[in-house]
Every structure is written in C-alpha cells, then in structure tokens.
Amino acid sequence: MNKHKRVRDGLALSRALPDRSLLTMVAAMSLLIALTFTAAVGAQSLSERWARGAANLITVQVPDPDKTPVTDSHTTGGTRIEAVLGTLKTAPDIVQLHRLDEQELDALLKPWLGNTGTAALPLPAVIEVDLTPGGVLSDDLVSTLTTIAPGTLVEKNDDWRSQLHTVARSLLFCAGLAIALVGTIGAAVIGMATRLGLGSRRESVTILHELGASDGYVARRFASRVAFLSFLGGLAGTLVSLPPIAILTHLMAPFSGNIPSTMQNGESWLSILKASLIAFWQGAAPQSLLIGLGCIPFVVTLIGWFTAQVIVRVWLRRLP
C-alpha cells in the first residue's frame, strides 16, 4: 500500500471505493469465518476425545460363568467368571473392572427381550473393562481368557469409534462448506465494491488507459487498495471474534481434557470474560485454532486482491 507515497495518477482510490461498507462487510465475514472455524475445531477435538474414551472401554462376555474353569492351573474350585476376573486383575493397563449385575443386564437387554426378565435365559456374564488411555488387552491375555472359559468374547468398541469419526468428519465438512460459502459471498461483495469504484472512476480509468497504462497497472492499483481494506476488515473481524472464542474454549476446556475450568455459578460475565481471555492468552486454546484464526486476515486479503484483479481486468476489456 502506498500510504506514505501517494500515487498521483488521478485514480484517488481512497475516495473512489465504498471504504466503510467494504470494511464492515469484510469484518462481518471474517467474524463468521472465525466462529465457524472455532466450532469446527471444537467439534473435532471433542469427538477425538470421545472416540478415545470409547476405545478405552471394552466389554468381555463370559458364557456359562458358573461352570468350573477349564485349565488345571485354576483348579482352586472357583467358577469361570471368577477365574476370568482373576486373570484380568493381573493384566496391565486396566483402570477398573466391573461385572454387570442382573439389574444392569436387564436394563441392557430390555430393548430386545422386553419385560419378561432375564432369569430364565442362560445369559453370559458381562464385564466392563476400563483401560488406561492408549492401553490394550494383549492377544495373549485374550487367548488365556478363551482357554479358561471357552466362548469368551472380547468386544472392542470399534463401531462406536468409527461412527464418532464419521460424525466428526461430517461436522468438519459442514464447517468447511460454510466457510467456503462465506468466502464466496465475501468475494462477491468485494467484487461489487470494486465495480462501484470502477464506475465512479470511469473517466480517470479511461484517461489512464489512453495514456498507455497497462491493464496490469490499473488492476494492481485497485487490487492493492481493496486488499488493504480487506486486510483491515479481516483483522477487525478476527479481533472481535476473540472474546466469544476465548469464552467458548474456556467453557469447553473440561470436556476436551485441557486445563480445568475454574468457573463457578453466579460468576459475572465480565469476570468470566477476563478469566477466559487470560487463559486464552496463556495458551488454553489449541494451536491449530490459533494458527487458523491468525490466517483469516491474510486469506481475506488474498481474496480481496484476486477478486479486484479479475473484476478490473474484465471491466477494462471494454476499452480496446
């Protein structure tokens, strides 16, 4: 931008373009993009966390739990379910073991069996295994279990996980679509503003053209002004988006496993905002979010530059 050295070619673009409305529109677009992007990043990190949680929960089904175990090393007289529980207790990575009692089984099976109750059926015992994050049940352990109690099923929650991934991907796709749409509308608005500026400088542009100014020169003059205004708008929109985004990341922190939120009931919005901004400043927000938000003014600048270039060059085609 030529703020210091004014270009004296008669275009006087600082007065030709609808500066204020262009700035406001671009700022509003940038705000929308920032919020959409934040929502997408938030949904992504939540779904990742939930998917990880789902992966950590494993169910083990033991048929005929009350029969004696098969292996001779466990001939202490217990039942198969006791032997299985005993083996699982010795395994690493396990946080918690829980055998579902009859009521819980009833609740689980109700959709399939109705209210008839489960007492009459030869049901397997079900154990919920809570693994540490990233922990696994080794194949050795699984084969030991099936030896002790033939027919034992170890069920990992892969279905859950893939479904969560699908949901997350769909959310991201929708957010991407929304951002692309807002960007396109933004380009259209910038294009109309450029067209308006060309209209008000029609005479000057024609004179410049007749004096031998190239299309590139005229397009560059308009594009740098439009890009400058777009940058300011983008910056303003992104800055305005920061307080709500800071609050959002602050509120989401406990769910996405970051720094726990210190919010209490009855706290005033002002102090929430203050705490949120401080946390945001200190890095509570994920890095990908910060990088993305930082890119917005520049992306908007690029959109402004290219749109103005195209509009001006097309307009100039009416002059030979």
Partner: peptide, 16 residues
C-alpha cells in the same frame, strides 16, 4: 484528469 493539478496532469505520462 479532474482529480489532478495542472502539474500532475502534465507529469502523468512520465509517471506511468
């Protein structure tokens, strides 16, 4: 060029 002074109008081809 309506927005330019006499001197700037005359200088325009050289500026371009």
């Amino acid at each position: 060029m309506p927005t330019l002074s006499v001197a700037d109008n005359i200088a325009l081809p050289l500026r371009l």
